[in-house]
């Protein structure tokens, strides 16, 4: 069952702009039903961590005539929407990240839209729509080629 608005309010009780963040999250999960909000521990680059909400799941990306469910995780900082979400692609074990100008080896997503993020002109819903367009031209993940089972893994 989908997460309700009141559950979201509870999850985001420590967010500085809670009502705004809840509202934008609700419109995203109404449109993209395969994304769901999850409360989890986010570790900052300085090693500190905080309980934050992320939107986890898949977005439909059309690439060369087929639609793929690209798995992403968008972390909403407690200063959202004044700071952009921290976004990652989530490859499964059968996928590899295609690093490039939009994705690094950790799966972190870099987009001009995130770089130039400014409230109120920037919004979660529009960000996802832009991701779908950009990933449709340049997918951030690919399936690994099937490797023969007789080929042992190599360890250095």
């Amino acid at each position: 069952m989908a997460v309700s608005k009141s559950q979201l309010k509870k999850m985001m009780s420590k967010y500085k702009y809670r009502d705004l963040t809840v509202r934008q999250t609700v419109s995203v999960i109404a449109m993209y039903k395969d994304l769901k909000p999850v409360l989890d521990s986010y570790v900052f680059s300085d090693g500190s961590s905080r309980e934050l909400v992320n939107l986890t799941g898949t977005i439909p990306v059309r690439y060369r005539g087929n639609t793929y469910n690209i798995a992403i995780c968008l972390w909403l900082l407690d200063t959202y929407p004044y700071n952009p979400p921290v976004c990652f692609v989530k490859p499964t074990s059968s996928m590899t990240i295609k690093t490039g100008k939009h994705v690094d080896a950790n799966g972190k997503i870099y987009l001009p839209y995130l770089h130039d993020w400014k409230h109120p002109r920037s919004e979660l819903l529009e960000l996802i729509q832009i991701m779908i367009v950009i990933f449709g031209g340049e997918p951030p993940v690919f399936s690994r080629p099937t490797v023969s089972a007789s080929y042992p893994p190599y360890t250095a």
Binding site: D34, G57, Y63, N69, P139, S143
Partner: peptide, 14 residues
């Protein structure tokens, strides 16, 4: 029941 959609990705031979 609803476990969400299974992630997929394009084949890498392209």
């Amino acid at each position: 029941l609803n476990g969400g959609t299974i992630p997929t990705a394009p084949p890498s031979h392209t």
